[in-house]
Protein backbone atom coordinates (compact mmCIF):
# COMPACT_ATOMS: atom_id res chain seq x y z
CA UNK A 1 0.00 0.00 0.00
CA UNK A 2 2.94 2.26 0.75
CA UNK A 3 4.49 1.82 -2.64
CA UNK A 4 1.53 1.72 -4.96
CA UNK A 5 2.13 5.28 -6.11
CA UNK A 6 5.42 6.78 -7.24
CA UNK A 7 6.70 9.34 -4.72
CA UNK A 8 6.25 12.21 -7.13
CA UNK A 9 2.52 11.67 -7.30
CA UNK A 10 2.00 11.07 -3.62
CA UNK A 11 3.47 14.38 -2.54
CA UNK A 12 0.58 16.70 -3.57
CA UNK A 13 -1.94 14.42 -1.84
CA UNK A 14 0.05 14.66 1.38
CA UNK A 15 0.49 18.39 1.09
CA UNK A 16 -3.23 18.75 0.58
CA UNK A 17 -3.95 16.51 3.59
CA UNK A 18 -1.58 18.48 5.80
CA UNK A 19 -2.98 21.85 4.69
CA UNK A 20 -6.57 20.80 5.20
CA UNK A 21 -5.68 19.39 8.61
CA UNK A 22 -4.14 22.70 9.69
CA UNK A 23 -7.02 24.63 8.12
CA UNK A 24 -9.52 22.49 10.02
CA UNK A 25 -7.80 23.41 13.27
CA UNK A 26 -7.85 27.13 12.51
CA UNK A 27 -11.45 26.97 11.32
CA UNK A 28 -12.70 25.16 14.40
CA UNK A 29 -10.74 27.46 16.66
CA UNK A 30 -12.32 30.44 14.91
CA UNK A 31 -15.80 28.96 15.23
CA UNK A 32 -15.27 28.41 18.93
CA UNK A 33 -14.03 31.95 19.38
CA UNK A 34 -10.56 30.88 20.40
CA UNK A 35 -8.37 33.88 19.68
CA UNK A 36 -4.61 33.89 20.15
CA UNK A 37 -5.04 37.09 22.18
CA UNK A 38 -6.83 35.13 24.88
CA UNK A 39 -3.68 33.19 25.52
CA UNK A 40 -2.26 36.15 27.43
CA UNK A 41 -3.15 35.74 31.10
CA UNK A 42 -5.55 38.22 32.64
CA UNK A 43 -4.03 40.78 34.92
CA UNK A 44 -5.37 39.04 38.00
CA UNK A 45 -4.41 35.76 36.38
CA UNK A 46 -0.86 36.91 35.92
CA UNK A 47 -0.69 37.78 39.58
CA UNK A 48 -2.14 34.41 40.50
CA UNK A 49 0.43 32.73 38.30
CA UNK A 50 3.24 34.67 39.93
CA UNK A 51 2.04 33.75 43.41
CA UNK A 52 1.53 30.20 42.30
CA UNK A 53 5.03 29.74 40.94
CA UNK A 54 6.56 31.48 43.92
CA UNK A 55 4.91 28.79 46.00
CA UNK A 56 7.07 26.25 44.19
CA UNK A 57 10.15 27.60 45.96
CA UNK A 58 8.80 27.26 49.47
CA UNK A 59 6.18 24.51 49.74
CA UNK A 60 4.27 24.47 53.03
CA UNK A 61 5.72 22.24 55.71
CA UNK A 62 2.78 22.63 58.08
CA UNK A 63 -0.82 23.80 57.96
CA UNK A 64 -0.95 27.43 56.88
CA UNK A 65 -4.49 28.05 58.03
CA UNK A 66 -6.46 27.25 61.11
CA UNK A 67 -7.11 23.60 61.82
CA UNK A 68 -8.74 21.97 64.84
CA UNK A 69 -6.16 21.55 67.63
CA UNK A 70 -5.96 17.76 67.49
CA UNK A 71 -6.03 17.46 63.69
CA UNK A 72 -3.21 15.49 62.04
CA UNK A 73 -0.25 17.46 60.79
CA UNK A 74 0.07 18.31 57.12
CA UNK A 75 2.47 15.47 56.51
CA UNK A 76 0.25 12.98 58.26
CA UNK A 77 -2.68 14.22 56.19
CA UNK A 78 -0.67 13.90 52.97
CA UNK A 79 0.57 10.44 53.94
CA UNK A 80 -2.99 9.28 54.64
CA UNK A 81 -4.24 10.79 51.39
CA UNK A 82 -1.38 9.17 49.48
CA UNK A 83 -2.27 5.83 50.99
CA UNK A 84 -5.91 6.22 49.95
CA UNK A 85 -4.88 7.39 46.47
CA UNK A 86 -2.75 4.29 46.05
CA UNK A 87 -5.32 1.91 47.47
CA UNK A 88 -8.14 3.24 45.30
CA UNK A 89 -5.96 2.85 42.20
CA UNK A 90 -4.94 -0.69 43.14
CA UNK A 91 -8.45 -1.76 44.11
CA UNK A 92 -9.82 -0.40 40.83
CA UNK A 93 -7.18 -2.04 38.69
CA UNK A 94 -7.51 -5.36 40.51
CA UNK A 95 -11.24 -5.36 39.89
CA UNK A 96 -10.75 -4.36 36.26
CA UNK A 97 -8.20 -7.11 35.73
CA UNK A 98 -10.55 -9.81 37.04
CA UNK A 99 -13.23 -8.89 34.52
CA UNK A 100 -11.00 -7.80 31.66
CA UNK A 101 -9.31 -11.15 31.05
CA UNK A 102 -12.48 -13.18 30.44
CA UNK A 103 -13.93 -10.33 28.38
CA UNK A 104 -10.74 -10.21 26.32
CA UNK A 105 -11.06 -13.91 25.52
CA UNK A 106 -14.73 -13.55 24.61
CA UNK A 107 -14.01 -10.62 22.31
CA UNK A 108 -10.79 -11.92 20.72
CA UNK A 109 -10.85 -13.29 17.20
CA UNK A 110 -8.57 -16.17 18.08
CA UNK A 111 -11.15 -17.63 20.45
CA UNK A 112 -13.76 -18.09 17.75
CA UNK A 113 -11.71 -18.61 14.60
CA UNK A 114 -12.96 -21.55 12.58
CA UNK A 115 -16.03 -21.96 14.72
CA UNK A 116 -19.16 -21.60 12.60
CA UNK A 117 -21.83 -21.77 15.28
CA UNK A 118 -24.25 -18.96 15.96
CA UNK A 119 -22.45 -18.25 19.25
CA UNK A 120 -19.21 -17.65 17.43
CA UNK A 121 -20.89 -15.06 15.25
CA UNK A 122 -22.60 -13.01 17.90
CA UNK A 123 -20.74 -13.39 21.19
CA UNK A 124 -17.57 -11.58 20.05
CA UNK A 125 -19.60 -8.82 18.42
CA UNK A 126 -21.63 -8.17 21.54
CA UNK A 127 -18.57 -8.43 23.74
CA UNK A 128 -16.74 -5.87 21.65
CA UNK A 129 -19.75 -3.58 21.76
CA UNK A 130 -19.84 -3.93 25.54
CA UNK A 131 -16.14 -3.19 25.75
CA UNK A 132 -16.60 -0.06 23.62
CA UNK A 133 -19.50 1.04 25.83
CA UNK A 134 -17.43 0.54 28.99
CA UNK A 135 -14.67 2.62 27.48
CA UNK A 136 -16.90 5.40 26.22
CA UNK A 137 -17.84 7.01 29.52
CA UNK A 138 -14.97 8.90 31.06
CA UNK A 139 -14.07 7.82 34.59
CA UNK A 140 -14.64 11.30 36.05
CA UNK A 141 -18.15 11.49 34.59
CA UNK A 142 -18.84 8.08 36.07
CA UNK A 143 -17.48 9.28 39.39
CA UNK A 144 -20.00 12.11 39.44
CA UNK A 145 -22.83 9.72 38.57
CA UNK A 146 -21.79 7.29 41.26
CA UNK A 147 -21.59 10.11 43.75
CA UNK A 148 -25.26 10.68 43.09
CA UNK A 149 -26.13 6.99 42.98
CA UNK A 150 -24.09 5.50 45.81
CA UNK A 151 -22.95 8.49 47.80
CA UNK A 152 -19.49 9.71 48.70
CA UNK A 153 -17.51 6.58 49.48
CA UNK A 154 -14.16 5.31 48.26
CA UNK A 155 -16.08 2.40 46.76
CA UNK A 156 -17.83 4.72 44.33
CA UNK A 157 -14.45 6.03 43.23
CA UNK A 158 -13.11 2.52 42.82
CA UNK A 159 -16.07 1.55 40.65
CA UNK A 160 -15.77 4.72 38.59
CA UNK A 161 -12.10 4.00 37.84
CA UNK A 162 -12.63 0.27 37.37
CA UNK A 163 -15.37 0.29 34.72
CA UNK A 164 -13.53 2.20 31.96
CA UNK A 165 -10.30 0.46 32.91
CA UNK A 166 -12.03 -2.89 32.36
CA UNK A 167 -13.01 -1.80 28.87
CA UNK A 168 -9.58 -0.54 27.92
CA UNK A 169 -7.76 -3.54 29.39
CA UNK A 170 -10.14 -5.97 27.69
CA UNK A 171 -9.67 -4.28 24.33
CA UNK A 172 -5.88 -4.25 24.49
CA UNK A 173 -5.66 -7.76 25.99
CA UNK A 174 -7.83 -9.06 23.14
CA UNK A 175 -5.51 -7.49 20.59
CA UNK A 176 -2.47 -8.95 22.36
CA UNK A 177 -4.05 -12.42 22.36
CA UNK A 178 -4.81 -12.14 18.66
CA UNK A 179 -1.24 -11.11 18.03
CA UNK A 180 0.34 -14.01 19.93
CA UNK A 181 1.72 -16.89 17.90
CA UNK A 182 -0.88 -19.44 16.90
CA UNK A 183 1.47 -22.40 16.42
CA UNK A 184 1.48 -23.62 20.04
CA UNK A 185 -2.31 -23.25 20.09
CA UNK A 186 -2.67 -25.38 16.96
CA UNK A 187 -0.20 -27.94 18.29
CA UNK A 188 -2.19 -28.31 21.50
CA UNK A 189 -5.43 -28.71 19.54
CA UNK A 190 -3.73 -31.39 17.48
CA UNK A 191 -2.79 -33.37 20.53
CA UNK A 192 -6.39 -33.42 21.62
CA UNK A 193 -6.75 -30.40 23.89
CA UNK A 194 -10.07 -28.61 23.88
CA UNK A 195 -10.13 -25.13 22.40
CA UNK A 196 -10.35 -23.52 25.85
CA UNK A 197 -7.39 -25.54 27.16
CA UNK A 198 -5.34 -24.78 24.07
CA UNK A 199 -6.07 -21.06 24.41
CA UNK A 200 -5.24 -21.10 28.11
CA UNK A 201 -1.91 -22.93 27.79
CA UNK A 202 -0.91 -22.25 24.19
CA UNK A 203 -1.95 -18.66 23.50
CA UNK A 204 -2.21 -16.95 26.89
CA UNK A 205 1.31 -17.71 28.20
CA UNK A 206 2.85 -16.13 25.11
CA UNK A 207 0.78 -12.96 25.55
CA UNK A 208 1.20 -12.83 29.32
CA UNK A 209 4.37 -10.66 29.50
CA UNK A 210 2.74 -8.08 27.25
CA UNK A 211 -0.46 -8.27 29.27
CA UNK A 212 1.44 -7.71 32.51
CA UNK A 213 3.41 -4.83 31.02
CA UNK A 214 0.26 -3.14 29.82
CA UNK A 215 -1.36 -3.66 33.21
CA UNK A 216 1.52 -1.81 34.84
CA UNK A 217 1.12 1.02 32.40
CA UNK A 218 -2.59 1.16 33.17
CA UNK A 219 -1.79 1.24 36.87
CA UNK A 220 -0.02 4.54 36.30
CA UNK A 221 -3.15 5.84 34.58
CA UNK A 222 -5.33 4.61 37.43
CA UNK A 223 -3.09 6.43 39.88
CA UNK A 224 -3.50 9.68 37.98
CA UNK A 225 -7.25 9.07 37.89
CA UNK A 226 -7.34 8.32 41.60
CA UNK A 227 -5.51 11.59 42.27
CA UNK A 228 -8.02 13.58 40.22
CA UNK A 229 -10.98 11.91 41.97
CA UNK A 230 -10.06 14.11 44.90
CA UNK A 231 -11.27 17.10 42.90
CA UNK A 232 -14.80 15.69 43.18
CA UNK A 233 -14.62 15.16 46.91
CA UNK A 234 -13.12 11.68 47.20
CA UNK A 235 -10.52 11.59 49.98
CA UNK A 236 -7.41 11.35 47.78
CA UNK A 237 -4.50 13.73 47.21
CA UNK A 238 -6.50 15.83 44.76
CA UNK A 239 -8.94 16.89 47.47
CA UNK A 240 -6.29 18.59 49.57
CA UNK A 241 -4.81 20.23 46.49
CA UNK A 242 -8.13 21.60 45.39
CA UNK A 243 -9.08 22.94 48.82
CA UNK A 244 -5.71 24.65 49.22
CA UNK A 245 -5.94 26.09 45.71
CA UNK A 246 -9.36 27.55 46.35
CA UNK A 247 -8.05 29.26 49.46
CA UNK A 248 -5.15 30.68 47.48
CA UNK A 249 -2.76 28.75 49.72
CA UNK A 250 -0.20 28.02 47.00
CA UNK A 251 2.62 26.73 49.22
CA UNK A 252 0.31 23.94 50.39
CA UNK A 253 -0.76 23.31 46.78
CA UNK A 254 2.88 22.78 45.94
CA UNK A 255 3.37 20.38 48.81
CA UNK A 256 0.59 18.28 47.32
CA UNK A 257 2.00 18.70 43.81
CA UNK A 258 5.41 17.54 44.98
CA UNK A 259 3.80 14.53 46.63
CA UNK A 260 2.09 13.71 43.33
CA UNK A 261 5.26 14.18 41.31
CA UNK A 262 7.26 12.01 43.71
CA UNK A 263 4.60 9.33 43.54
CA UNK A 264 4.50 9.43 39.75
CA UNK A 265 8.30 9.32 39.44
CA UNK A 266 8.64 6.37 41.84
CA UNK A 267 5.85 4.64 40.03
CA UNK A 268 7.12 5.23 36.55
CA UNK A 269 10.62 4.11 37.47
CA UNK A 270 9.49 0.88 39.11
CA UNK A 271 6.96 0.14 36.41
CA UNK A 272 9.57 0.79 33.71
CA UNK A 273 11.93 -1.58 35.52
CA UNK A 274 9.22 -4.23 35.67
CA UNK A 275 8.45 -3.85 31.99
CA UNK A 276 12.09 -4.13 31.09
CA UNK A 277 12.33 -7.38 33.03
CA UNK A 278 9.18 -8.70 31.37
CA UNK A 279 10.81 -8.25 27.96
CA UNK A 280 14.01 -10.07 28.78
Amino acid sequence: MKHDLPPGRRQPVRLFALLSFALLGVLVAGLMGLMPGDLIPRESGARTAMDFFQGALHPALQHNNWVPPNAPSLFEAIAAATQRTLLIAFAALGLALVFALPLAFLGAECTWKGNTSLWARWVPKFTRLGIALLRSVHEYLLALLFLAAIGLSPGAGVLALALPATGILAKVFGELLDEAQTRPFLALENLGATRATALLFGTLPRALPDIAAYTFYRLECALRGSFILGFFGFPTLGLGLRLAFEEGDYPTVWTYLYALIALMVIFELSSAAMRRRLRS
Binding site: R183, P184, L188, N190, L191, T197, F201, G202, P205
Partner: peptide
Protein backbone atom coordinates in the same frame (compact mmCIF):
# COMPACT_ATOMS: atom_id res chain seq x y z
CA UNK B 1 3.19 -35.22 16.37
CA UNK B 2 6.54 -33.44 16.34
CA UNK B 3 6.03 -30.37 14.14
CA UNK B 4 8.85 -28.96 12.08
CA UNK B 5 8.85 -25.62 13.97
CA UNK B 6 8.43 -27.41 17.36
CA UNK B 7 5.43 -25.17 18.28
CA UNK B 8 6.62 -24.66 21.85
CA UNK B 9 5.65 -21.71 24.02
CA UNK B 10 9.00 -19.93 24.33
CA UNK B 11 8.41 -18.20 27.65
CA UNK B 12 7.25 -21.27 29.54
CA UNK B 13 9.59 -23.62 31.36
CA UNK B 14 10.67 -26.80 29.63
CA UNK B 15 8.67 -28.98 32.02
CA UNK B 16 5.53 -27.00 31.26
CA UNK B 17 5.94 -27.46 27.54
CA UNK B 18 6.42 -31.18 28.08
CA UNK B 19 3.51 -31.41 30.51
CA UNK B 20 1.34 -29.80 27.82
CA UNK B 21 1.52 -33.20 26.12
CA UNK B 22 -1.16 -34.48 28.45
CA UNK B 23 -3.54 -31.57 27.96
CA UNK B 24 -5.41 -33.73 25.49
Amino acid sequence: FVPQDHALVPNLRVWQNVAAGRLG
